[in-house]
Design a protein around this nucleic acid. Structure first.
Lengths: 235, 235
DNA sequence: GATTTCACCGATAGTACTATCGGTGAAAAA
DNA sequence: TTTTTCACCGATAGTACTATCGGTGAAATC
């Protein structure tokens, strides 16, 4: 990453570190292309250019590699999150800042779409060793956005408005992810158009947040506000 | 399903059909609880109460079961989609209709959350035999919603407004799924509150759709509107 | 130059799962 | 009643993957 182009003669520890990184990269690629079912030590090692058994020189077991991979992803995601916050602060006008808040994660996702894909997949997969990381990341993003919104004046006073803020933040993240994937898949090629849609959606939500203290929900408060739990009998 | 409570003496073909359904149910439950990695013929058979080898009396192989399971899910999803359309038409006022359009899928998801979970998981998993079904389902939902919106007057004239409509429909679906999951996971217990948020988001998007013919996008049309493709060099 | 270290190799034991096979008893057909 | 059918059983061959082990040569150390 540092840009130092070291020529071929490497020390032993440098070479080892390089192989380790190759293994993580290979695992990421396979995870992205074939999913976790396709992730075997045989394929990882072959792709990294070493023998299958040599895999265990670098990692205790497969689980150990996934832990390292999760850390790697977390570092990268945290980095782009910090960058987003920093760059959004630099925007001149309020309107531009609002738009930038969407552009930056969109750019970040476009740069490394495999991170989002792997995260979305692991998010709902109980058999995935990455599920915990995926959930944590999603929560972190949501809270980060909610905090930003709170700082912008959409203050969370009572419990209800706090929950609304959370819902809006989660919704905005879902929208960003979905449209970013559409962009990556080539369906929505125009970034500015995508930003238009994101901004439009969020404006509606902000209007709700601003009106939070003015009146109660549209429904009478007396009735049951939960769906009954699954009756389990349907065919 | 039909309500006929047949007492214990079953014909041979009835008994076989029952076992087959038990196998599909067992597979669904395991898929939901443990993901595809945990889905083995051993577990499916044990859960259905038969020997592992008897699995092959009902299905040619595991793939065959997954095909049957996909059909089963597709039928159920299609059914709830039709129900949603029908019930939304019955709503008295426009405002109520708008709100109902969100309530019905939310109810449907709450009734069978495992369907959504399995779909979301398979959607981004290249190793999943259910990926195709999941993608088709997502597309069908999006187009269904887009058509409803078009019928409501958000007409798709030119190519650009058609694409916007598609983006909005996809966004609304993503929002519905995300908030529905939040509801299932117990974070957003109040259905009416969830509907408030969904309606607020969509109002913002509708405002955009209505203004589609009035002016161009906020950005100058000359510059590059796509992100460069991933440089692959980042660490 | 001699010795030690160790990243990598090939071979293989162990494990978990898929799918097949012959046998069995009760329902269905004769 | 006799015969046939077949849904289910236990046992097991075949397959794919994980993880270990002893060996090797070049880098590192002496």
């Amino acid at each position: 990453m540092g840009g130092t182009v070291t020529s071929t003669p490497l020390t032993r520890s440098e070479a080892k570190d390089l192989t380790r990184r190759k293994l993580i990269r290979a695992a990421m690629a396979i995870l992205d292309e074939e999913g976790e079912a396709g992730l075997t030590t045989v394929k990882i090692a072959r792709r990294a250019g070493i023998a299958q058994s040599s895999f265990y020189v670098h990692f205790k077991d497969k689980q150990d590699l996934l832990r390292a991979l999760a850390e790697h992803c977390a570092r990268q995601l945290l980095g782009s999150m910090r960058e987003a916050r920093r760059r959004a602060r630099e925007a001149p006008s309020d309107l531009e800042r609002h738009r930038e808040t969407f552009r930056i994660p969109l750019e970040a996702i476009s740069r490394h779409p495999e991170l989002l894909r792997i995260q979305l997949r692991a998010r709902h997969d109980p058999s995935s060793p990455l599920q915990e990381l995926a959930t944590e990341t999603a929560t972190a993003y949501r809270d980060h956005l909610a905090a930003d919104l709170a700082a912008l004046g959409y203050t969370a006073g009572d419990e209800r408005s706090r929950r609304r803020l959370e819902m809006v933040a989660e919704g905005i993240n879902a929208l960003t992810n979905t449209l970013a994937l559409g962009h990556i898949e080539g369906r929505y090629t125009d970034v500015e158009e995508t930003l238009d849609v994101l901004v439009a959606f969020s404006k509606g939500a902000f209007r709700l947040l601003r009106s939070q203290d003015e009146g109660p929900s549209r429904q009478a408060p007396g009735r049951d506000r939960r769906f009954p739990s699954s009756p389990q009998g349907a065919e």
